[in-house]
């Protein structure tokens, strides 16, 4: 059961246990098992990757659960990759987003998998990128990636998704907030969730303003859309699903799909490289601990010491 080639074949035949195991192998990508991803990716590149981001409490998980239902009603197979933060203290994590999606757990056309961000800023971990490739090959039409909502700095999803959905809610910020850089610059679709609340109209106006400003600054003919939803009440979900599909048609027809696929895979290579570098750096730092400890007593020559560490790290990597 642990032979990857067997797992790939079984997973393709619809065996979820095999796919679950395969995803675990991809979570631990290394030189010995990189061929698994190579084999998978050579057949992929077809699925629609939908990134969903937004601040904590905006209702991402609940909305995704509704969206899964809407996509299932349209006969798509749906995978959800839910990225949860790792505790910086214990390195453990609680993956609780699944809680709101459990109604889909036993649906044969749905696969939900939680991953941690392993402390990588930007929220989209290497594991998640590798899993996208696997779901793609296994025939999942829509791959929804839910990222840790950290507000304005969350732009990593740009390098990952074909369609970026940014979630906001009433009272979450004003028009000045909207003018500032960050997530409000990257959305293809903006969602005002919890729109059953009385102050939703105002937020909706802000988001229309954001979308208009956005359309001015961007290439391409897609105008960012704004959709009102209430995930809790199930309102606006169908319209959201249709808008996301409309964006995918645009991505396919404009040739943007190819560009985004390259961007995603380039990002994956970058993350692999970064991990190798950090691994080597950690080992060198460990070996040089005593010497560095002496230097930092009075900090004389600390910069040269850092440069020396860099050279040692490079040397170690080349060897």
């Amino acid at each position: 059961m642990s032979d990857p080639s067997v797992l790939i074949e079984r997973a393709k035949a619809g065996d979820k246990r095999a796919l679950g195991r395969l995803l675990t192998l991809l979570e631990e990508l290394n030189a010995d098992n990189a061929w698994i991803l190579e084999r998978l990716s050579s057949e992929g590149g077809r699925a629609h990757v939908v990134g969903i981001t937004g601040m904590p409490g905006a209702g991402k998980s609940t909305l995704i659960s509704r969206l899964v239902r809407a996509f299932r009603d349209m006969s798509y197979k749906v995978a959800v990759i839910s990225i949860d933060p790792t505790s910086p203290i214990s390195s453990g994590s609680i993956m609780g987003d699944r809680l709101r999606m459990q109604e889909h757990a036993t649906d044969p056309g749905v696969f939900i998998r939680s991953v941690t961000n392993r402390g990588i800023l930007g929220g989209v971990s290497l594991a998640a990128l590798a899993m996208i490739e696997a779901f793609d090959v296994m025939g999942y039409d829509k791959i929804i990636v839910e990222t840790v909502g950290v507000g304005q700095s969350e732009t990593d999803i740009m390098n990952v998704a074909d369609t970026i959905v940014v979630l906001t809610m009433p009272g979450a910020g004003d028009d000045v907030q909207a003018l500032k850089a960050g997530v409000f610059e990257i959305g293809d679709v903006y969602v005002v969730n919890k729109s059953d609340r009385p102050d939703a109209a105002k937020t909706y106006e802000y988001m229309l303003f954001v979308a208009e400003k956005e359309a001015l600054g961007r290439g391409g003919s897609w105008r960012p859309a704004v959709v009102k939803t209430s995930a809790a009440l199930g309102l606006g979900i169908r319209e959201l699903a249709e808008t996301i599909n409309r964006h995918f048609s645009y991505v396919l027809e404009s040739g943007e799909k190819e560009r985004r696929l390259i961007a995603r895979r380039t990002h994956l290579v970058r993350l692999v490289a970064a991990r190798l570098l950090l691994q080597s750096l950690s080992e060198v730092m460990e070996g040089e601990r005593e010497r560095v400890g002496k230097v930092v007593r009075d900090m004389r020559g600390f910069y040269d010491e850092a440069m020396r560490i860099v050279r040692l790290t490079g040397k170690r990597l080349v060897e």
């Binding site: 979820k16 246990r17 796919l19 679950g20 195991r21 995803l23 675990t24 214990s90 390195s91 453990g92 994590s93 609680i94 993956m95 609780g96 699944r98 809680l99 459990q102 757990a105 036993t106 696969f111 939900i112 998998r113 939680s114 941690t116």
Partner: peptide, 24 residues
């Protein structure tokens, strides 16, 4: 330091097994 998948209350056996398999 564990990774904990919490599925919450009132699960069916089928839901628990499906979650365990998908999350491996």
């Amino acid at each position: 330091g564990f990774e904990v998948v919490y599925t919450g209350l009132r699960q069916t056996i089928d839901q628990v097994v499906a979650a365990a398999i998908q999350e491996d």
